[in-house]
Design a protein around this nucleic acid. Structure first.
Lengths: 215, 215
DNA sequence: GCACAGCCGTACCGTACGGTACGGTTCGAT
DNA sequence: ATCGAACCGTACCGTACGGTACGGCTGTGC
């Protein structure tokens, strides 16, 4: 399954979703635990069925990542009436969702899997994760930033730069440390600090790009 | 080789370093290309020698990452006479080195390898990369930040927080995108923007933590 | 009841790779 | 000259896993 164009809303039957769940569980439990035999046994299906449905191992992997990554749903952020207070709330919401997602076991697993995949020639999974992670956030955040600029709440020349600054302020070194398995950074450890970090990041972003800021 | 305590200055003979170079090359060329047979052939040595020197495949992998990661040398940053100008120069230097390192093929390969490794139970490589990457920077940067605070050039309560903010401002989403194989982000693409990004990040950091800043 | 499709479970095949064994060569020490 | 250590090259073994084949079970349409 080299193509894997995988347009949106790839509809899976409940049975297939059960298989994908099993596959994801195996991935989470142990990165290289996704063997066809293991998935078949876990999902109580035959390998023949797996190959019929997903083509080959890569197809199953792609379907799993695709299916799971698409589940990341960013909550709706009100964009209509923009006050500085509402903007701050929206930014905090984004920061919170971003952090919460990033530290989740599923996200870590998906990113690790995609990175492992990208370490070989295949960049399929990398693009899927990118598209449903950073790029999805960018698509959602940029219009808000631009609306805020139009409303004179923010000041910047490049919304791209502003978005990436926000990303950096929120994520910092958390993601790479989690991906590398930093033992000094359990997710419960990070989780308890989310609210504080969200506030700090938002404050910093507004300090840099708020209309009344010094630049 | 489960222990892999690997104290500092693991001294390798030139021949062994040639082997490690071959191993690294194979890793860079193709993440899963490091097979014992391939390394032996590339380095013109026998597999028996590989096992004698490195124990097993994991030992070879660990030695390669360890040896290469330790090569990352951050340039000396003058810390004696701190002026705001000197501080800015130091910060820019850090940002430049960090970015330059991160976008290099070797760094990408090492991080991918370590992350793949961490996806299984093994977190050996992850710790090595962490220790020689983010943590090394932190160790170098923090004293400078604290010295600058003592000299009333910077203002912050937690040097840890300040460091992580700096990291975030510099790295942003570049590393994760490179690790995921984002095709819209070639390293030459990033490379040409390093100087501009370094300046932006430094300006932003100083805007947030500079003594005359608003917070 | 019957045919057929879909699927489960298991057995099976081929290959790739980690790891071992061994003969042959080089080279330094004695 | 001889011995032995280190090492190269190759052959070999065992296993794990991707992928295929097949027999048997179940349900649905007719």
């Amino acid at each position: 399954m080299a193509l894997a164009i995988k347009v949106n809303e790839e509809t899976f039957t409940p049975r297939q979703q059960a298989v994908l769940t099993a596959a994801l569980d195996l991935l989470v439990e142990n990165g290289d635990g996704l063997t066809m035999t293991a998935v078949a046994r876990r999902a109580s299906c035959s390998k023949e069925t797996l190959y019929k449905w997903f083509g080959d191992r890569d197809g199953l992997l792609t379907a799993t990542v695709q299916w799971q990554a698409a589940k990341v749903r960013m909550p709706y952020v009100d964009r209509s009436h923009l006050s500085i207070k509402a903007l701050r709330g929206s930014l905090e919401q984004f920061a919170r969702d971003l952090l919460t997602t990033i530290i989740g076991e599923v996200s870590i697993t998906l990113n690790r899997t995609a990175i492992t995949h990208a370490a070989q020639e295949k960049d399929d999974l990398g693009n899927i994760v990118l598209e449903n992670g950073p790029m999805a956030i960018r698509r959602r955040l940029k219009p808000i930033l631009e609306a805020a600029r139009d409303a004179r709440l923010l000041r910047f020349t490049s919304s791209e730069e502003a978005y990436r600054t926000f990303f950096g302020l929120v994520v910092r070194d958390v993601q790479i440390r989690l991906l590398l398995g930093d033992k000094g950074l359990t997710q419960s450890n990070v989780e308890s600090n989310i609210e504080a970090d969200v506030k700090i990041a938002t404050d910093q972003f507004l300090a840099l790009y708020g209309a009344k800021a010094n630049n």
